[in-house]
Amino acid sequence: MDYGTLKTLHVLSSTLLFGTGLGSAFYLWRAARHGDAAQFAFVARQVVLADWLFTATAVVFQPLSGWLLARTAGHPLDAGWLQASYGLYLLAGACWLPVVWLQYRLRDLARDAARLQQPLPARWHRCLRLWFVLGWPAFGAVALIFWLMVNRPGFGA
């Protein structure tokens, strides 16, 4: 595969990773603010599906395409900006995995509350707060990775 095609695919998959994550988070947060358990359960079901269809595939493709890009372009894999991006990617992943689990939990708690026609339980509110808090370091890490990819600062190895 030529460098231009690989770079285009890398950028498109990063757009899916960043865009789907932000878009899904926005819709899930808006549904949570509404407070309707049935509505939230529906939105959460869609967000979980989007995470597996789009975000998960991008999460797998990004390191592979990034490694191929760096290798093809002749960047040393131990360059400081690449080393920093590896760590940030791991940080984003360490936040994303519990976020996915929390989305399942939030969906199930909302579904059960809607079925029983009860308000959303305290556990749902705790899970939502944790989901929200974990999103910020993941967002920041991905934003910094974009900055590193664009600027390739000359620090470290």
Rank of each mutant, 00 (worst) to 15 (best):
A38F: 00
A84M: 13
T5I: 15
W29S: 09
Q103E: 05
D36R: 04
L12T: 13
L106Q: 12
A32C: 00
P63V: 01
R105A: 04
F26W: 13
T55K: 06
T57Q: 07
D108F: 14
A37F: 03
P98Q: 03
G74M: 02
R115Q: 14
V47W: 14
G80I: 07
A110P: 09
Q103F: 10
Y86M: 15
W67K: 09
L91P: 08
T55F: 00
G66H: 07
G66V: 09
W96G: 07
L82G: 01
A73G: 11
A114R: 06
F61D: 10
A44E: 01
A41D: 00
L82N: 14
T20V: 12
A56Q: 09
L77D: 08
V59F: 09
L109E: 03
S85K: 12
F26Y: 13
G80M: 08
Y89I: 08
L9E: 01
A92Y: 02
C95H: 01
A70Y: 03
V47S: 01
F54P: 04
R115N: 13
G93W: 08
Y89M: 14
V47G: 02
R30F: 15
Q39R: 13
L28R: 02
D108C: 09
L17H: 06
D112G: 13
S14D: 03
A92T: 04
S85V: 14
P121D: 02
Q62A: 00
A70D: 10
A122I: 12
L9Y: 00
P98R: 02
A50E: 07
A56N: 07
V48H: 08
L6C: 02
G21Q: 07
A44R: 10
T72R: 15
L53W: 04
V43F: 00
R71H: 10
P119Q: 06
W101Y: 14
L53K: 08
A37I: 05
W96E: 12
